[in-house]
């Protein structure tokens, strides 16, 4: 039995989500390109983490990135909002066009870029001195956004979207770091959503969540895809199959295959992709 079939059967257990892709996937040809990436390489010191990656990521689509641990998935998405360069001794080469502008051009301010390209990290990182409410509003406060005037609505909307509102609505003034690990992760999602970015980069957002919270986050991703461009790193292939329109498979820092999700999972073109999704390694 091939694991592509397993993927399908796993998807069926969640009635809200079906494997057949949203309609938008069919008219992909007409979609605008959000990120156009050409020969992107990145290093930690002398060690190259990703090698000459080229791919186009469409607007208002969910793009999943899969691959074995250490293959450069996190590094890749961290290059898309210029977080990679915050680590001392790192280096980036290549072209990343965001809405047609190269984000690595001299004149580009990474701070402004990051306001439009939000990020949820692999490990939850709520701000330890802030309450739940302050955590959600942190982005608006830090950047002195005008939107802070609508703070109560923003808090509720962001927490609703992150499927956390019901659990914390009576605890908004308690410390954010006092929540459970999964709640913290959803708090970080709410924090990223509160600033209303164009793009949301999610680095294994569900790795600390139970199946119910995971399902809610997946619903959220579906909902958000109508207005946001989402790039999600995941170790869970069923999840990639459930939520994404397109999937990219990374191996040893290289992009092996990138295509429509159902095609990649049911009829992979590359032998290595097939081996990975059928569980032969990784």
């Amino acid at each position: 039995m091939s694991s592509a079939i397993e993927v399908k059967s796993a998807a069926k257990t969640n009635p809200n989500i079906n494997l057949t892709l949203p309609d938008s996937a069919e008219k992909e040809g007409s979609l605008k390109t959000k990120f156009s990436i050409k020969n992107l390489s990145a290093w930690f010191g002398n060690q190259q983490a990703i090698r000459a990656i080229s791919m186009d990521i469409s607007e208002k689509q969910v793009t999943a990135i899969i691959g074995p641990s250490g293959c450069g998935k996190s590094t890749f998405i961290r290059c898309l909002n210029r977080m990679h360069e915050l680590v001392p001794g790192t280096q980036v080469e290549g072209l990343v066009k965001f809405d047609g502008y190269n984000i690595y051009d001299k004149g580009v301010d990474p701070v402004l870029l990051r306001r439009r390209v939000g990020m949820v990290f692999q490990k939850p990182n709520p701000f330890p001195t802030m309450s739940v409410r302050e955590n959600v509003l942190a982005g608006l406060k830090l950047t002195k956004s005008e939107q802070i005037k609508r703070a109560p609505e923003t808090v509720e909307r962001a927490l609703q979207q992150a499927a956390l509102w019901r659990e914390v609505r009576d605890r908004l003034d308690e410390p954010g770091a006092g929540l459970s690990g999964g709640q913290q992760q959803r708090l970080c999602i709410a924090r990223a959503l509160a600033v209303e970015p164009d793009v949301l980069l999610m680095d294994e957002p569900c790795s600390a969540l139970d199946p119910i919270a995971t399902a809610r986050i997946e619903d959220l991703i579906h909902g958000l895809a109508e207005s946001y461009t989402i790039i999600i790193v995941t170790h869970n292939m069923q999840q990639a199959a459930r939520v994404s329109n397109r999937t990219a498979f990374f191996l040893l820092g290289e992009l092996v295959e990138f295509g429509k999700t159902n095609q990649l999972f049911t009829a992979p073109k590359d032998k290595r992709t097939e081996d990975y999704i059928t569980g032969k390694f990784g």
Binding site: M83, R114, R115, N125, K141, L142, T143
Partner: peptide
Amino acid sequence: LSIREGAYALGATRWQTVSQV
């Protein structure tokens, strides 16, 4: 570092990150 990165990812400048987080 993860706390600082959280602030940077929200579009905070270095000074905003240092002073407020």
